[in-house]
């Protein structure tokens, strides 16, 4: 890190410490966590990109905190200058699950926002491509939400079939075969 980058880092640290809506925590070298109010996040990203060289949007992650009734959105931005990564966390209410797009700041946001809309149902106002991408033929609820249970869905719409071909029966007659029945192999069905 050269002199200019170090000055930039110090300036940014001072500035972030002053802003009331931002809570700053340094996790380890090159990793910083910011907790931001939802209404302040777009402005913060604008500041980080425009003034503090965080030009690379590495990813946007959505986490469904169903117990709290909230979605957490995490914007990971990287600076090529100061060589550090900031994860800006914000929380929005689960209902109605709408937020602002940051596409005008970061072009890669279009992909992540489209993905989050598809998987979690969080709608981003102002995002350019919100049509379906991966789950084109899916019209159920957004599957990555915690209240979507894949196993319950399968049980409802598909029939379990027992797979016992003749060759397996022959093996079993000789004392071989599958030692643990498939039902008991599945960890999710373990009772404890």
């Amino acid at each position: 890190m050269n002199q200019g980058s170090r000055e930039l880092q110090v300036w940014l640290d001072d500035l972030l410490a002053e802003i009331e809506q931002v809570e700053m925590r340094r996790k380890r070298e090159r990793r910083m966590r910011l907790d931001v109010d939802a209404d302040a996040l777009p402005t913060l990203l604008e500041l980080l990109k425009g003034k503090a060289s965080y030009v690379h949007l590495s990813a946007i992650t959505c986490v469904d905190w169903i117990a709290e009734g909230e979605f957490e959105l995490i914007y990971h931005v990287w600076s090529y200058e100061t060589q550090s990564l900031i994860s800006a966390h914000t929380r929005i209410p689960r209902e109605p699950g709408r937020y602002l797009s940051v596409y005008d700041l970061y072009k890669p946001a279009a992909f992540f926002e489209r993905d989050i809309y598809e998987m979690f149902g969080v709608y981003f106002e102002g995002s350019p491509f919100m049509e379906k991408f991966i789950l084109t033929e899916w019209d159920g609820p957004p599957p990555m939400r915690k209240d979507f249970d894949s196993e319950a869905y399968i049980n409802q719409f598909f029939n379990w079939q027992e797979y016992r071909p003749d060759w397996l029966k022959e093996l079993e007659a000789q004392g071989g075969g599958i030692a643990i029945p498939p039902d008991e192999q599945r960890y999710s069905r373990r009772e404890d």
Partner: peptide
């Protein structure tokens, strides 16, 4: 671009499995 032909839902699958699995 049109994706989705190889979607296996890793992120959802991983939520239902142990850390080591």
């Amino acid at each position: 671009a049109d994706a989705g032909y190889l979607h296996r839902g890793f992120e959802k699958l991983m939520e239902g499995r142990l850390w080591i699995q």
